[in-house]
Amino acid sequence: MSDSLARAPYVPVWSSSAIPAAAPEPPAPAPAPRIRIAPAPSPRATRRTRPRMFYAITACAGIAVIFIVKLLLSVAISEGAYETATLETANKNLTRAAQTATESLDRVRSPQYLAANAAALGMVSNTHPVYLRLSDGAVLGQPQRADGSGASSGALVPNSLVTGAPLVTQQPAPGAAPAPTAAGATDTAAAATAATPDPAAPPEPTALPTPVTH
């Protein structure tokens, strides 16, 4: 109590008004402000500075951290953008490659190409179907020799995609380089031979390997 009175001049206006209010009104509310005010002033003044400093440092550090993180994040994202761009380009190229491969696969699996290859290997179709029943070994139908009467030439049902594709019988032997023939080797100007069509070795319109003359 005496301590509080002694320090009264330092206390702001509202606290001095609170003290006189205590005298005329002794009931409950009076002691409460005193207790609050009394210990406050002297330590508060010293304590206040420290928390402020601490908060300021924390805030500044926080902002700095946020800036640094933001900077790093930006760097990472823009790194990512370049990586994305590179991968997208790679993806595009691979898609193209896949498409090229699929297209050439579709070409060689077309019925025209298969039939032409089968015919080149000497296969003929038999128009007389016969079945052997496995359960009792019965022969169903009347077996007859294949006479190859069915149409076999692949040119009847055109497919411009397989034009010029070498047949299986025309493929160069494995290991043998698809080198130019003797005639082509002596001819230094390869373009010249391509310009004048040679019936024996027609120029390839596609990127397929040149058939070896047989």
Partner: peptide, 8 residues
């Protein structure tokens, strides 16, 4: 557009 089987 491409038609792998040609005239088929």
């Amino acid at each position: 557009r491409t038609y792998p089987d040609g005239a088929v």
